[in-house]
Simulated scan of single mutants.
Amino acid sequence: MRFSSAACIAALSAGNLVSAGSWFGTGDVSVNDAQKVPGDSPLQFCDGDHDQDTVHIEHVDLLPNPPEAGSPLVIRATGTVFKPIEKDAYVKLVVKYGLIRLISTRADLCEQVENVDLKCPIEKGVLSITKSVDIPKEVPPGTYNVFADVYNADDTPITCLQATVTFGMKRNTDESIESIEEVEDL
C-alpha cells in the first residue's frame, strides 16, 4: 500500500490539507469527545496543553465520514496560524495497523504542504483549505492509528493530532439487498 502523504495530519495541523485518504477508510471511528477536533472527522488533539501551539485548528470535515475505500474524499479545514511556519518545520509521524508499526518517520512539513498548493513560509492569519483525494480501493480492513506531532524549525509546537479508524469491508449494496431478501424468504 502506498502512503499517499506523510503530511496528512501534519498539514491539517498547519491549517492545510494533504491527501489523507489512504489512512482513513470505511468503518467505525473512535474519538475522545474531550480532545476531538471540531467538525466531522476522526481527528483529535493529542493529550496535553495546546495553548502555545502555532496553529489553532477550528474545524475539519471529511466528506463522506467515514471515508470509503475506492471513493473520493473531500477534506475541508479551517485554522488560524499565529506565527509564520517557515522552512525546516517538521512532523514526527507514526502510523500503526493494529499493533504493527507501518511508518515512523520525520517529514519536512514544507515539502508536504505543496500537496495542497501551499508553500512555506505560511503566513499568520486564517487559512481555509478544501482538498479532494482518491482513496485507494486496496486499503486493507483493520484498525489504523495515526499520530502526528508537528514542530517549527525552532522546535516550538505547531500542534499534535491523532486519529483512529477501523476499516471495514465495503459491501456491495446489491449483494446486501439480495442477502436480506434471502433471509426474509426463509
Results as ranks from 00 to 15, higher is better:
Ser4Trp: 15
Ala7Ser: 15
Cys8Ala: 15
Ile9Glu: 15
Leu12Pro: 07
Gly15Tyr: 04
Asn16Pro: 03
Asn16Gly: 14
Val18Lys: 13
Ser19Asn: 15
Ser19Val: 14
Ser19Pro: 15
Ala20Gln: 05
Gly21Asn: 05
Gly21Ser: 05
Thr26Lys: 07
Ser30Gly: 10
Asn32Phe: 05
Ala34Glu: 03
Val37Pro: 08
Pro38Met: 02
Asp40Met: 06
Pro42Gln: 00
Pro42Val: 03
Gln44Asn: 09
Gln44Cys: 02
Phe45Glu: 05
Cys46Glu: 10
Cys46Phe: 03
Asp47Asn: 08
Asp49Ser: 00
Asp49Thr: 03
Asp51Lys: 01
Gln52Tyr: 08
His56Asn: 05
Glu58Arg: 06
His59Asp: 04
Val60Lys: 03
Asp61Phe: 09
Leu62Thr: 04
Leu63Thr: 13
Pro64Arg: 00
Pro64Gly: 02
Asn65Tyr: 08
Pro66Gln: 00
Glu68Val: 04
Ala69Thr: 03
Gly70Cys: 05
Ser71Asn: 07
Ser71Leu: 08
Leu73Pro: 00
Val74Cys: 00
Thr80Leu: 06
Phe82Ser: 03
Phe82Asp: 06
Phe82Arg: 13
Lys83Ser: 07
Lys83Phe: 01
Ile85Gly: 02
Ile85Trp: 10
Lys87Ser: 12
Tyr90Arg: 09
Tyr90Pro: 12
Lys92Pro: 09
Lys92Asn: 14
Leu93Pro: 05
Val94Lys: 15
Val95Glu: 09
Lys96Arg: 13
Lys96Trp: 02
Gly98Asp: 07
Leu99Asp: 15
Leu99Pro: 11
Ile103Arg: 06
Ile103Cys: 05
Ser104Pro: 09
Arg106His: 11
Arg106Met: 11
Asp108Gly: 10
Cys110Leu: 02
Glu114Lys: 13
Glu114Gln: 14
Glu114Cys: 08
Glu114Ser: 11
Val116Leu: 03
Val116Cys: 09
Asp117Glu: 09
Asp117Pro: 01
Lys119Met: 05
Cys120Asn: 02
Cys120Phe: 02
Cys120His: 04
Ser128His: 02
Ile129Glu: 08
Ile129Gln: 11
Thr130Ala: 07
Thr130Glu: 10
Ser132Val: 13
Asp134Lys: 14
Ile135Ser: 04
Lys137Pro: 13
Glu138Asp: 11
Glu138Trp: 05
Val139Ala: 08
Gly142Glu: 12
Thr143Leu: 10
Phe147Gln: 14
Ala153Glu: 11
Ala153Met: 13
Asp154Lys: 14
Thr156Arg: 13
Cys160Leu: 04
Val165Met: 01
Thr166His: 06
Phe167Tyr: 04
Arg171Pro: 00
Arg171Asn: 00
Asn172Thr: 01
Thr173Asn: 00
Ile177Val: 10
Ile177Pro: 00
Glu178Gln: 03
Ser179Thr: 13
Ser179Val: 05
Asp185His: 11
Leu186Gly: 12
